[in-house]
Write a protein that binds this DNA or RNA. Structure first.
Lengths: 202, 202, 202, 202
DNA sequence: TATGAATGAGTATTCATTCAT
DNA sequence: TATGAATGAATACTCATTCAT
């Protein structure tokens, strides 16, 4: 029947269920049932449940993110322009993996026990370092974290707005760009204790 | 031995473990063991595992959030000043419940099966409606969601920065205020298709 | 509040629940809850769950059955008339304890672990011996067992017929009398292997 | 080791234990232990405990009873001869499932929570309708119920009599036939209040 | 490439019972 | 007369994983 594509089909169903019901709540039995195969068949293609989820990460986000990182690291020191292009590129690559991004956001606790979780965290950390000045003020660190977070979460939030997926991506991207731009202009953290709260953008 | 404080102690340990290891990964056995009581003792104080987690939400965030909402709803229509005060107040109330907020963020998948998850989502939705103009442009919707998100996540992110908890709160609050202020000034979504991408804050 | 009648109220509720949901399915928690007291209160009045159920048997059927037996044993050897009067008397005494009779019939398995079950069985055995001739043919043994059985089960079967409780009792009694009368007339088991199957009453 | 007969072996042991100790008192652990497998193995073959007991009913009584019913329904209106043949056939089919019949009789309370209990009750109701004239007098209803009851209970009662299983079945059958014959001859319920108690068979 | 059969360790939950107050 | 707090042992059930075929 199904030629050599079983592995792919497992990944598809798994991603769908993981995103929908969470990692721990999704059992291999369920995945197998939806596929019409036995649990044991899954074990022919993936050594463990963790192996299965890992394969999803590698194909869908770790690889793409590494490309963005490689591109950015070849271009140091990082100008504002580079930072914004990082956002552009990263935004594009995650928008192709929406369900997995949703999965990541909603299963942080589960990811803590998965080695792939560490890897993902590392990528985020690297990206963050690239768009954030070293010694940036605390507010600017927040801005940069927030920029990344925003791009992630906007992919699956705002369901009430009837906006299309690309529209949402663009909106999130714009806000992220503003946040990073704002952080960039402030430069390094000012003399400690001078952390005033008032506006100073633009 | 310990008088009437067992219930409280259960809640404390439970919150700690739920935040640290996640909802599904934390078994009642673990909680009981850490407390030095039997599982059955937990069931004397809480009818189910869900009941236990629910009690944490009610005491720590649902109640406080409702106060903020009540205050804000008594003050409609919502001026920018009101919006910013909502952020202030909400920021303060969640900063007292950091571990639970972390729990919420990292266990979204698990919360989907908990009735208290729905309740929490409803509060977020209401707060969002209060700080966001109806018919706001998509970017402004993103800004407002992001503001809330940012306040939440900053409480437990940025561990690398040696910042204290209050410092982090203030930094997140400031960014959140900027985002909401920015959204507020834009007013309703412009004529469709005029969604320009360039800067227009201030 | 409730004076000295708590013990009685426990028995009432317990009987009701035992009959309705079965012995094992009825927990002391349920009984206590329906009564508005704590489980521990039950333990003040009854040493164990078995003790509680035992008290019901003693008050409602063991005592009364013993009276019938005592009356019958004083009247040996047992004439047909005596046998029929046993049925009359026994019928009357169980009809006052319908729910318990139902309980007995539907919880035979549970009763096997209860010492009161043995006692009940002994009473049945004695009654049976009284209405059945020693060395009765197998069919006549069946008839006599059936007579007793019939009186029991008719108390709570035949719900479809709109008959009143006393009507049902009378009907069952009549059938029981016929069965015993029939058995009585046959006398001792005929020469073995002569057990013909056709009618031979009257 | 043992090929494909595990499922059967589970059923055998389960039936034995269910009959001996009752449904609720028999735990899956016990069944598994007696079989020398793990509890989980049972769950490979039966989805739930209820599923296991259901399989016993289907194989041993529901199916056979349905055959009797089908035969009888094809032969309406129901003559006395047909009625008696129903008893014959039903008697035969239950005598092959003695332990399950015992289980049914002694676990009525437990069966109330099992869907298979409802099904069994429905079969009994149908059989009863077939051997009992519509509008039969109350005594005759009792006779017919009693006939069924008697065939059931005689399979496992009368252990004191050294009679063999087939002898018992024949004895019960004979009594059942008499009861039904008697009921049949009376015809519909007489003018109310004419319910005389004396003999009037054949 | 898969399956059938099984396992071991775990889960949440329930129950009858106890005892100090 | 009762209760509040707890226990120990049990229960049905689920899961990721294994392995011979």
């Amino acid at each position: 029947m199904s030629r050599g594509n079983t592995r792919q089909r497992i990944q598809d169903i798994a991603l769908e269920l993981f995103a929908e019901r969470g990692y721990e709540k999704t059992s291999l039995r369920e995945i197998a049932e939806q596929l019409g195969v036995t649990k044991a068949a899954l074990y022919y293609h993936f050594k463990t449940k963790e192996d299965l989820v890992t394969s999803l990460f590698e194909d869908l986000v770790l690889g793409p993110a590494d490309e963005v990182i490689a591109w950015a690291e070849a271009r140091q020191p990082t100008t504002l322009e580079t930072k914004l292009e990082i956002l552009n590129r990263y935004s594009e690559c995650i928008s192709k993996a929406t369900p997995l991004v949703r999965f990541i956001h909603e299963n942080q606790a589960a990811l803590r026990d998965l080695s792939v979780g560490e890897q993902m965290k590392a990528r985020m950390f690297t990206l963050l370092k690239l768009i954030k000045d070293e010694d940036a003020a605390l507010t600017d660190q927040v801005r940069c974290s927030s920029a990344l977070f925003t791009m992630h979460s906007s992919l699956f939030t705002l369901e009430s707005s009837g906006a299309g997926i690309e529209e949402k991506r663009q909106a999130a991207l714009e806000v992220a760009r503003e946040l990073v731009t704002s952080a960039h202009h402030h430069g390094p953290a000012p003399r400690p204790a001078a952390e005033t709260s008032s506006a100073r953008h633009g």
